[in-house]
Simulated assay, not measured.
Amino acid sequence: MDRNRILILCDFDGTTCSNDMGNTIMNRFAEGWREIDRSYYTNVIGSRLAYLQIQPLFKGTKREMVDYALGEEKLDPYFLSFYASCREKGIDLKILSDGLDFYISSILQKHGLQEIEFYSNRVVFRDDATVSIEFPSPRNGCDLCGTCKSTILEAHREAYDLIIYVGDGYSDVCPCQKADLVFAKPILSEKCRKRGKACIAYENFRDVGEILDGILADTEDAAGSSPRRRR
């Protein structure tokens, strides 16, 4: 298998970033958002409508929110080494998020990862410390999610032989059905199980890297492209 044809798509909140920065930001700057969020988690509304309802609750400047995000973020402790390994092997990596662009870009830049392409919802900050939320990512006609991860995954399908998805939650359920290989934390793993989609449990990106290395090595052995001595 040509490793230049492998794409890894990573969720951000709870995945690339160990904590959920979207929730963290809304706890601080969007008082009252939890009631709307409950409707989202019980499937009454999708994330796109939830964001539109939460939007008027935001109060704060971009500087305030970025500074808060940079103080609270917890990048997965193994993501930097995992990404470096992907680059070394010629494996592409992109981030798909149903979160908000300003904290993703700020956190990536903080860690020297600004070159990573990411897709997310967009926040426009106004002079009166209010915001509007936009949804620039392409979609396939479904308006449930702010960022349609499935549409983005499918847009990359012809360019890659293998698409790997790494996620943790509700917004990852649909794209996981279309991925060739899935790494899932508990909530996503349970959703995959109920839908009959195979997935691999992981805790952090060290797990993902070690498991993926083994899978790729076995694939190369089977193809005869990289003989390995077995002990």
Score class of each variant (00 low, 15 high):
K185G: 04
R195S: 11
S137Q: 15
D207V: 07
R28C: 12
Y40E: 06
F118P: 01
A69G: 08
R139A: 10
F58L: 07
L212R: 02
I36L: 08
I215Q: 04
L188E: 02
E115I: 06
R193P: 03
Y202A: 06
G22V: 04
N204M: 08
A217L: 13
R126P: 02
L181G: 09
K59Q: 15
L49R: 10
E158C: 12
S106R: 06
Y103C: 03
C17P: 03
G214V: 10
V44A: 15
Y160H: 15
W33F: 14
P175C: 10
S97L: 07
L188Y: 02
L108A: 07
I6D: 00
T130K: 05
D2M: 05
E154V: 09
C199F: 03
E115K: 11
T24D: 14
Y68W: 11
C86L: 14
G209F: 06
D92I: 05
Y160A: 11
F102Y: 14
I152E: 05
G14E: 02
T24E: 15
F12I: 08
D168C: 11
A129P: 04
S106K: 05
L212V: 09
I211Y: 05
F82D: 01
S97V: 07
G71S: 11
D37V: 05
A155F: 08
E64A: 14
R230L: 14
C192Y: 00
F82I: 09
Y41I: 14
K94F: 13
C199R: 01
L188K: 01
D76Y: 03
N23I: 09
L162N: 06
D67F: 12
Q109H: 06
I45T: 07
K191I: 05
I25Q: 00
T219P: 03
I54S: 00
Y119V: 07
I36V: 15
A179G: 07
D76E: 14
N204R: 09
S81Q: 15
I95G: 02
R228E: 13
A222D: 09
N19V: 15
R230Y: 08
K149P: 03
T42W: 05
R195C: 08
L7F: 06
Y202S: 07
A184V: 06
I152M: 09
G14P: 01
K178M: 13
D92W: 04
N27L: 12
K110D: 10
E115S: 13
P136S: 12
P77Q: 11
L153R: 02
V166S: 02
V131T: 04
N43G: 06
L9T: 04
T130A: 06
K89E: 15
E88C: 12
Y119P: 01
C86Q: 09
T61D: 04
D67I: 12
P77M: 11
P175T: 10
E64W: 11
D67C: 14
I25E: 00
